[in-house]
Simulated assay, not measured.
Amino acid sequence: MLLSATKSLLSDQLVFKGLKQGLTLFIPEEKSFAHWLEILDLQLKQAKNFFQGGAILVEIGERKLSPSEHGDLKRLLAKYRMTIKSFNPLEKKRFNPWPREIQKKEKQAEVLFFKGTVRSGQRLENDGHIVIKGDVNPGGEVVASGDIIILGALRGIAHAGARGNLQAEIIALTISPVQLRIAHIFSRTPEGREERQGPEIAHIKGEKIVVQRL
């Protein structure tokens, strides 16, 4: 019974997304709120200091929180030095953080700015561009539907143009990743390649990703 419950917790994931309004936590309406609090506690514990000190928005859809549930969420976030800025920032607009198909009309891309290191096991994702003031370590992952700019070293995984944008680019002061991906095309750093210092840009040329100095 305990093993089954543990597997259920591991199979569920909450989504944090960088929106125009700010970093937003999506809590699904399905399953109990207590279940999602357990998931949130587990994810924040695994993320270590990744979100600490931040004020986030919480999207709960049509779910109505009781005073005790609201208090439980505030206490859990406070445990990781986080606060709630507001609830339901999307103002009842139907929004799916896991889109199934690319929208035909391009909307204005939003930019997520992040200061710090993306460490192993951590994932930073945004529906738009991402700018990181810091490094992306091996095991860290950055995913954006637009461009990715890293004011530091890229040694983890970077996926730009995640919705199929072949014009997306990845820029970093050092590009030596575990994997580079733009749209559906991916590449790895060749074995034995020396790590070059100085800004580089990765983009698609023909049917492959090329890395060039800026």
Score class of each variant (00 low, 15 high):
Arg100Met: 15
Lys79Gln: 12
Pro177His: 05
Gln43Leu: 13
Val211Leu: 00
Glu38Pro: 00
Thr117Ile: 15
Lys79Glu: 13
Ile60Trp: 00
Leu65Gly: 02
Gly206Pro: 02
Ile150Asp: 02
Glu125Ile: 09
Lys48Asn: 15
Ser86Arg: 07
Glu91Leu: 13
Ser66Lys: 10
Asp127Thr: 10
Lys17Ser: 11
His184Asn: 10
Gly198Leu: 01
Ala183Asp: 08
Val142Pro: 08
Glu29Ser: 08
Arg94Leu: 03
Glu207Tyr: 03
Arg193Cys: 05
Ala168Pro: 03
Gln179Tyr: 07
Glu191His: 11
Gln197Met: 11
Ser4Val: 09
Arg213His: 07
Val111Phe: 10
Lys48Glu: 15
Met82Ala: 04
Ile102Gly: 01
Val118Trp: 12
Pro67Glu: 00
Glu195Trp: 08
Ile157Val: 14
Leu151Ser: 06
Lys105Met: 03
Lys74Arg: 13
Trp98Asp: 02
Phe51Val: 02
Pro67Val: 00
Ile209Leu: 01
Asn165Lys: 08
Leu214Lys: 13
Lys205Ile: 04
Lys115Phe: 10
Arg181Glu: 13
Leu124Pro: 12
Gln103Asp: 11
Ile102Asn: 07
Lys48Met: 10
Gln43Ile: 15
Gly116Ile: 10
Phe113Gly: 05
Ser66Thr: 15
Gln46Ala: 15
Ile150Glu: 03
Glu38Cys: 10
Val118Pro: 09
Arg94Ile: 06
Ile27Ser: 02
Gly54Ile: 14
Leu40Phe: 10
Ala153Phe: 01
Gly192Ser: 09
Glu62Met: 04
Ala162Gln: 12
Asn49Thr: 15
